[in-house]
Amino acid sequence: MTDLADTTAVGAHPGAATHDHTHVTATGISNEKVAMWAFLGSECLLFGGLISTFLLYKDRAADGPVPHELYDIAFTSISSFVLLMSSLTMVLAVSAISRGDDRALRAWLLVTALLGSIFISGQVYEFKEFLNEGLGFTTSPAGSAFFTLTGFHGVHVTIGIVMLISAALLSRSGRITQRNAEAVEIVGLYWHFVDVVWILIFTVVYLIK
């Protein structure tokens, strides 16, 4: 703890030169960034609970099918890849605004949102397939756990898409500029987090049998 006391003593520099709106804080990090990371730390416990629930229940399906019999790994690999690439486009959006390139910012934000939407469409398609094959939300503990975990993640992605589009609109109306580029960075943190959660889910839920 003492080393924490050291790094957080008196005003280090508040990030990059673009943050001229940022007031000096005791740690040198903006409040928004500290808050977002604290929130993401908290989200780990939420998703951890849902992943554990799934692991515990994944084979408890009474007479119905278990999720493992229904996975289409090729399909999910592609949608995972799409989500992974959306992290790249998100980084490029942050990079664009830190250069002050508003048009590129909006372009990359919308591409990111589009990739996210493709992922969500894939999830909707997958859910439909599972329903057709007899695994529903209410069929069994395994079904409930699978749909809850992936559904929670899907809701997070959807909220992220709304945030991305909102950020693009705010940029258009001149409310997000190079001055407050950090707003985009923080939306990006949320988006990347949703991506890393899927990295966990893809391996733990889909690939490990």
């Binding site: 939300f137 209410t138 069994s140 409930s144 756990a145 809850t148």
Partner: peptide, 24 residues
């Protein structure tokens, strides 16, 4: 920060069980 989300996860499971017929 770290304990509340655990309860939240549990309470969502309970909500789905009670209101949407999940099987947790």
């Amino acid at each position: 920060l770290f304990a509340v989300p655990v309860l939240t996860a549990a309470q969502f499971l309970l909500m789905f069980d009670r209101l949407f017929d999940a099987q947790f």
